[in-house]
Amino acid sequence: MPIPLDAPEVLDREFLLVRAKLLEIAASLDRIGRAEGQVEGDRRLQLIHDALDVLRQGESDRAEQIQMICSLSYDEQWQEKFDLLPR
């Protein structure tokens, strides 16, 4: 389906929103860094950095890629493991 707006129009509309969201992310990471305690080994922090890599390097479907980064893996053998194979 065609998008009625062209790319410059989308950028005009989205730029300040994207800027604000980037600042929120930056400030959140700064806040974690300023706080007491260690989170280096926390899986969630790695997810955030993996997602930021997608923003920097991805060319399309970035939202879907970030969703997958934040998803548990699917086990194709789940029905066998649960003893719920189709009859």
């Binding site: 969703q67 998803s71 548990l72 893996s73 789940w78």
Partner: peptide, 19 residues
């Protein structure tokens, strides 16, 4: 929701498509 959505949706589709 969240991290369980992808796996859960795949499992649901497996069960629906088997029937």
């Amino acid at each position: 929701h969240l991290e369980d959505k992808y796996t859960g949706t795949r499992m649901i589709l497996d069960m629906l498509c088997d029937d």
